[in-house]
Design a protein around this nucleic acid. Structure first.
Length: 571
RNA sequence: GCGCCUGUAGCUCAGCUGGAUAGAGCAGCGGUCUUCUAAACCGCAGGUCGCAGGUUCGAGUCCUGCCGGGCGCGCCA
């Protein structure tokens, strides 16, 4: 509809008297659904926008435009000029009826659009190193990333979901040492112990900054059960690290599976070393005189590329270390190599999902990618703010080091998978998320996810009951019988799904879809109140309403599917 | 100190990239079940959009400066 209107408006625009330097085809004509229904179904402010370039009064422009418009009466029932120069469009009832028929025939594909058709996208998310179970913090990342991937899929992209990890760093070494220490203790219960700063009693060989969670002990026990104490004859912690990594990854995948998340690829940072990609980055930067040696380290001349820092000494250019004097790369280097790798695989769009604490790393990566000829404009970064769990009105304190975090599994055990996903999605990514456990647990009207699911279940129930009295779905419904306010309101709402999904995808704002679905559910509940199906005045009307209910069911189900939330048939 | 995010109803948050009278849920008050799921619907009440300037036909939205909250600012990731 909007595309159609834009075409017609462009045609009308071309017919206007205008100065020579005015390019009518370059004008972006946008339509929005006004908040006030008296202002029609769609409105555009082109006339106001054009007042300046055309040097004419907005209302005058609007009148001239409307005069030149040739709109199909089957789609548009009326056009009026209002306020300072808005042009309001009113849908024709036949347009609405045709739209509902289209929803019914499109079925579970309704809501899909083509903006990304023929294009590929890579969404990288979760990307937690295998040092422990996923926590609530990872949950927001996982659910946001997965839903962005769904949204891109629904706008036509061929999407790859990738998990990036590093199993070689310091953290992983400590993990191995932690596990080894626990195995030793289990094998020799009388071995000496020590007490850490937080009061935890651990084996003497346990690293001070080791992983204290109970899962370490479980992994240790499993290793001992499988290999016996003989495994301790091995030098170092490598086999313990490997066993732990395997167990933890299996656990992470189980957790993701519960959330309905299945990755297409796991990308090990190690492969960037194996392929020499990491060192190629350094070499190529050197060739371009953007990398140099100083103080035993290798530096990236980000200062030349515009990176600055401002402190008490004023603003100055700063360079960035790529390889430490120890010979170990900093995290930036593999990150640059990884992004070049992603772009090199030919994706048209590359999405990163980062927590707010990583925001500072992103500009260095972009500089590196651009310096080496990569097209950084293909990279989109979704930054999300942190999650606060609230219980009994009080924030729940969490610390990874001391293992006092709440795991994603525990959260799902407490409030269910659907609620977990919805709560992570219902707010804009760039606001702090307050996850109220008491509210989330309540299976009542206080919990917004149930509102959507309830509306869907209600429709399923109606369809079942209608079948019992011989009222069934088919192609013979006369949708033009749907004329009351609630029916028209619901129809208009249902027609918005494709553009709402497209908008949520474009702006990487899944919460917009959640907000829209609530409006759909509200519109349905109003329809339910006003328009009985089984008790309709006559059968044809009941049949038409039944079809509208079916269309609402599809919209809710498809929308929930994009969000990764179940659409129950009964509650 | 500097950078990014943020400040909208008692609480949690939307606000479609600058539009018309700023919205929703919860909490509060009051109504609606002999009829398709009351996990619902309807109504009332609730606001200096942090503060002060600016930009323009028009600002919650853009700019500047303050104030408050969060996250960063390493040869950690």
């Amino acid at each position: 509809m909007q595309a159609y209107l834009a075409r017609q408006f462009h045609a009308a625009l071309a017919a206007l008297d205008a100065p020579d330097d005015f390019d009518a085809s370059a004008v972006a004509i946008e339509f929005e659904t006004p908040g006030n229904p008296e202002h029609g179904d769609l409105a555009t402010n082109v006339a106001l926008q054009l007042a300046r370039p055309l040097r004419r009064a907005p209302r005058q422009i609007a009148e001239a435009l409307v005069e030149h418009l040739a709109l199909d009466p089957k789609r548009v029932a009326g056009v009026e000029i209002a306020g300072p120069g808005f042009i309001n469009i009113r849908f024709a009832p036949t347009y609405l009826a045709d739209g509902i028929a289209e929803i019914l025939s499109t079925g579970e594909a309704y809501g899909r659009t083509e903006a990304g058709a023929g294009k590929t996208a890579l969404v990288e998310y979760v990307s937690a190193n295998p040092t422990g179970p996923l926590t609530v913090g990872h949950g927001r990342n996982a659910v946001l990333g997965d839903t962005i991937a769904n949204l891109l899929d629904w706008t036509g992209y061929a999407v790859t979901r990738e998990y990036y990890f590093n199993d070689a760093g310091r953290q992983m070494r400590i993990l191995g040492e932690s596990v080894r220490a626990r195995v030793e203790a289990l094998a020799q219960p009388d071995a000496p112990t020590k007490t850490l700063d937080d009061g935890t009693v651990v084996p003497e060989s346990f690293p001070d900054d080791g992983y204290r969670g109970d899962y370490i002990v479980e992994i240790a026990q499993a290793i001992l059960d499988e290999h016996g104490p003989g495994i301790l004859a091995v030098e170092g912690a490598e086999p313990f690290k490997e066993a732990a990594e395997k167990a933890i990854f299996a656990d992470i995948e189980r957790t993701l599976e519960r959330l309905g998340i299945r990755m297409d690829a796991f990308f090990n940072e190690h492969s960037l070393y194996a392929s020499n990609a990491v060192w190629d980055v350094v070499e190529h930067l050197r060739e371009k005189n953007l990398a140099y040696d100083k103080d035993g380290a290798v530096w990236f001349a980000t200062g030349q590329l515009g990176k600055t820092r401002t402190d008490s000494e004023g603003e100055r250019a700063v360079d960035t270390v790529l390889v430490k004097s120890s010979g170990e790369p900093t995290y930036r280097l593999p990150d640059i190599a990884y992004h070049l790798d992603k772009l090199g695989r030919g994706f048209d769009k590359v999405v990163d999902v980062f927590g707010a604490d990583h925001i500072a790393t992103y500009p260095d990566v972009v500089l590196g990618v651009e310096a080496l000829g990569g097209d950084a404009s293909k990279i989109d970064v979704l930054i999300y703010q942190f999650v606060t769990l609230v219980r009994g009105g009080q924030p729940v304190k969490m610390s990874t080091r001391k293992a006092t975090y709440v795991t994603l599994d525990e959260l799902m055990d407490e409030v269910t998978e659907d609620v977990t996903r919805f709560f992570f999605l219902m707010r804009s990514p760039n606001t702090h998320l307050e996850f109220d456990l008491d509210l989330a647990k309540e299976a009542s009207d206080k919990n917004p996810v149930f509102y959507l699911q309830y509306a869907h279940a209600r429709i399923c129930s109606i369809i079942r009951k209608a079948e019992d009295v011989g009222l069934t779905l088919g192609n013979e419904a006369d949708l033009s019988l749907l004329t009351n306010e609630s029916e028209l309101g619901l129809m208009k709402e249902l027609l918005r799904l494709p553009s709402e999904i497209a908008l949520a995808a474009e702006t990487m704002g899944p919460h917009k879809l959640a907000t829209y679905l609530r409006e759909v559910a509200t519109a349905f509940n109003q329809f339910y109140r006003d328009s009985p199906i089984i008790g309709a005045d006559h059968e044809a009307l009941g049949r038409a309403r039944l079809h509208l209910a079916k269309a609402a069911q599809l919209v809710l189900r498809n929308g929930l599917t994009v969000l990764g939330i179940s659409a129950p048939e009964q509650m």
